[in-house]
């Protein structure tokens, strides 16, 4: 009953269940962040003046520690997954917005002029030309957002045990079973690496048009340095 994969019953999940929960809590916010960032980025590209204030606002949100977020949100959404996922979605948005904006802006002027001259309206141009060419930059942003989101889910332990694999850390102390902590750390790391690898494969599949060999590292504007993933004060 004390094996590496024996999860204490207070967590109400099997090992596989915890993994599923963890992925859901980490990836849904990234998806939400992406869906928000895409139209927002187009607005920022079309109306240049919009970008600095939007970027400033998102940077301030990024600076708010996640604990403070939770304290505010808990009055509205209670001790639920949603309370964990909303801040993660905001963090994803903050990482993805500049990645998409810079990727879209890196499309050569000639390409844009050609698209306009062929009678592309702004939306068609964004969806059919700018976004596809920005795919390498967008996926680079997604990689950062995904990995940090997977790490940050563990903070949810503080919100009525909504930390998925992170809950194992608390249980490790509670039941004096250090192997649970090791399990938590290793599983989280493996999940992060696996998701990252999948995103790299996705990029390769989506960009047959990039020069082979010289396949340059996509230019991104992911801001550095990122907070340490397990820093619970964030």
């Amino acid at each position: 009953m004390n094996g590496f994969f024996d999860i204490p019953s207070d967590l109400q999940h099997s090992y596989a269940g915890l993994i599923g929960l963890h992925l859901r809590e980490a990836l849904l916010p990234v998806l939400a962040g992406l869906l928000l960032a895409l139209p927002l980025a187009q607005l920022c590209v079309r109306f240049r003046w919009l970008y600095p204030p939007v970027l400033g606002a998102t940077t301030i949100l990024y600076a708010v520690p996640s604990l403070a977020f939770f304290v505010v949100l808990i009055d509205y959404t209670g001790q639920t997954e949603l309370t964990v996922m909303i801040p993660l979605a905001v963090y994803s948005l903050v990482v993805l917005l500049p990645a998409i904006v810079d990727g879209v802006r890196s499309v050569p002027q000639e390409t844009l002029a050609a698209a306009t001259a062929m009678g592309f309206g702004p939306v068609r141009r964004y969806v059919q030309v700018q976004l596809p060419i920005a795919v390498p930059a967008i996926i680079a942003g997604l990689r950062v957002a995904t990995v940090s989101s997977i790490s940050l889910v563990s903070v949810g332990t503080l919100i009525g045990n909504q930390g998925a694999l992170g809950n194992l850390l608390a249980d490790a102390q509670k039941y004096d079973r250090p192997e649970l902590a090791v399990n938590s750390v290793i599983t989280t790391a493996v999940l992060a690496i696996a998701c990252d690898a999948l995103l790299v494969l996705l990029r390769v599949a989506l960009t047959p048009w990039m020069p082979n060999g010289t396949r340059r590292r996509p230019k991104t504007s992911v801001r550095q340095p990122l907070p340490a993933p397990q820093d619970v004060t964030r």
Binding site: P108, E110, T111, A113, A114, A115, T116, A117, M118, G119, F120, G121, V129, P132, I133, V135, T207, W209
Partner: peptide
């Protein structure tokens, strides 16, 4: 404007091709 443009071919320096197609 889009109808007008589609009735006029446009060729530029460096071609301005869609690199992803």
């Amino acid at each position: 404007v889009t109808t007008l443009r589609r009735s006029m071919g446009y060729v530029i320096q460096n071609a301005g091709l869609f690199q992803h197609r």
